[in-house]
Computed example of a mutant assay.
Amino acid sequence: MAEEYRAKVFKSGNSVALRLPKGLGLKEGTEVLLREEHGEYRFEPIDKPKRKIDLTGIWGAIPDLKLIAPEDRLFEERELNWGPFDERD
Rank of each mutant, 00 (worst) to 15 (best):
M1H: 10
A2Y: 05
A2L: 08
E4R: 14
A7Y: 01
K8S: 08
F10T: 00
K11F: 00
G13N: 03
S15F: 12
S15N: 14
V16C: 00
A17D: 03
L18A: 05
L20P: 09
P21L: 07
K22A: 12
K22H: 12
G23W: 01
G23P: 02
L24Q: 05
L24D: 07
G25H: 06
G25C: 06
E28W: 06
E28A: 07
T30H: 03
E31F: 11
L34W: 12
L34P: 02
R35H: 04
E36I: 09
E37T: 08
E37D: 14
Y41R: 07
R42D: 01
F43A: 11
F43Y: 13
E44V: 07
P45S: 12
P45N: 04
I46V: 12
I46E: 04
D47L: 10
K48L: 14
P49I: 03
K50V: 05
R51F: 01
R51S: 00
K52M: 01
L55W: 01
L55P: 01
L55S: 00
G57T: 05
W59E: 10
W59Y: 11
G60P: 12
A61K: 09
D64T: 15
L67K: 04
L67T: 06
I68N: 05
I68G: 04
A69Q: 11
P70F: 04
R73W: 02
R73Y: 05
R73C: 03
L74M: 13
L74Q: 10
L74T: 06
F75Q: 11
E76A: 12
E76K: 13
E77P: 02
E77H: 07
R78A: 11
R78Y: 06
R78Q: 11
E79H: 09
E79T: 15
E79G: 09
L80S: 07
L80P: 03
L80G: 14
D89Q: 08
